[in-house]
Design a protein around this nucleic acid. Structure first.
Length: 377
RNA sequence: GCGGAAUUGGUGAAGUGGUUAACACGGCGGAUUGUGGUUCCGUUAUGCAUCGGUUCGAUCCCGAUAUUCCGCC
């Protein structure tokens, strides 16, 4: 078997702007576009790696910030890297801690400096300082397949001036991170920022691409900006990204958004939504999202979705899963996590097949016409 | 039988002589997009055991009745 040190991307074919491709990693080759579940603390909440493999997950995410705090990068390095530590031999992508700039740095003007970002640990309140160099050092030790540049995920709304100075700083951080990066088995992705502003998105994309990363992501999306704005953010940036590298839309995972993203040429998505919704008793279905706690499912002895092939749908009924949630039994969250992840992974399989057959838009329209709750799209 | 205490929503219970009866649980909904979170938000008693009385006004004061609990016969 060929050892691919850096990730390779091969574009197989296009249907409109939708891309069917191949992502070749040190831990297997996968067709794109793909959906990647999030496993912040070196596990996808509630699931074993066997369940991830069964759901046909490709890449999963982990988080630099969280693993830095606990158990610590050195422990994971001693374990032989993240794959050995968590016993997952598929590809792993680590987020840089950039999203925690968004969620944990309370006073942005004071906490975010040119040098790096001041946080308060969510575990013990201790003051922490994360820099592009440190983020790279941690990710290098974690030995994930894909490391992400350290950026600021800009809140929405933000003024043009704020977005401009933040986007420029993220570019400087990207350069610093790239220079400090030191792991020949690991790939590094750049992140495009620029908020909702067309010229800043273009500037960020062009300048990030000039630095030469193994892949590019569009960040600063799904932070409360509304769908139309989010799609514009993608439109503004994606045309400046090279065709021969993977494009990753960060934090996006509603079924409709996956369709809109693929249509614009996105290859990779990640989102906490399937697992978070699952823990809160919500399930994706081809007819829309349902809340398994609703009393109407009390005596519903059918599976969540008749078209789903997941372990949960093959073995359990809505009435049983509802009972688990009402009784506060953790198995309910597990079963729905399996279902929701498989739902999105399967949806991407269908999307790839549709692109292959030049009928992506037909697929999209059919998906939308089956969706009963149009307002929730 | 005598004496004492209690009686507030589905549950556990706060509370006041004067517009919307606290809170918790439960119930019913909703939210959730690079995961601090099995979380957050909304809603849920036109009524305070029953019947009278006092009062401008009573869930709150008084009386009777009912039920429950605790003592003593």
């Amino acid at each position: 078997m060929v050892k691919y040190v850096k990730i390779k991307y091969e574009l197989i074919k296009k249907d409109g702007n939708a891309r069917l491709g191949k992502l070749i990693t040190n831990h297997g080759t996968y067709d794109t576009p793909i959906f990647m579940p999030v496993g912040t603390l070196a596990n996808v909440k509630m699931l074993t790696k066997e369940e991830l493999v069964d759901a046909k997950c490709a890449v999963i995410l982990s988080n630099t910030y969280h693993l830095w705090l606990r158990p610590g990068a050195d422990t994971i390095k001693k374990a032989g890297g993240l794959h050995k530590f968590m016993n997952y031999d598929g590809p792993i992508l680590t987020d840089s801690g950039g999203f925690q700039v968004f969620s944990l740095a309370k006073n942005k003007a004071k906490d975010i400096t040119e040098e790096g970002v001041h946080f308060k640990s969510h575990i013990d309140g201790k003051s922490l300082f994360l820099t592009p160099e440190l983020s790279m050092e941690i990710q290098n030790k974690l030995d994930s397949d894909i490391a992400m540049s350290f950026d600021e995920c800009i809140p929405y709304p933000a003024t043009y001036d704020y977005v401009k100075q933040s986007t420029e700083r993220t570019l400087r951080w990207a350069k610093r991170g790239k220079d400090a990066f030191d792991n020949e088995n690991q790939s590094l992705f750049g992140i495009v920022q620029g908020g909702e502003y067309e010229d800043l998105r273009k500037y960020s994309a062009v300048e990030t691409v000039k630095m030469g990363f193994d892949g590019y992501s569009i960040g600063g999306t799904s932070v409360g900006e509304g769908k139309e704005t989010m799609y514009k953010m993608v439109d503004y940036a994606i045309k400046y990204l090279p065709e021969d590298k993977p494009r990753y839309l960060m934090g996006v995972g509603e079924p409709f958004d996956l369709l809109e993203g693929v249509q614009r040429g996105i290859d990779m998505f990640d989102c906490v939504l399937p697992t978070r919704l699952a823990r809160h008793a919500n399930a994706f279905t081809y007819k829309g999202k349902i809340n398994l706690k609703n009393s109407k499912f009390k005596d519903d002895f059918t599976s969540i979705d008749e078209k789903c092939d997941c372990y949960t749908c093959k073995n359990y009924t809505k009435a049983y899963i509802r009972h688990l949630f009402v009784a506060k039994e953790g198995l309910g969250g597990r079963l729905l996590s399996i279902h929701n992840i498989r739902f999105l992974v399967k949806m991407m399989e269908e999307i790839r097949q549709a692109i292959k057959e030049d009928r992506f838009l037909e697929y999209k329209n059919e998906f939308l016409s089956n969706y009963e709750d149009k307002a929730k799209l």
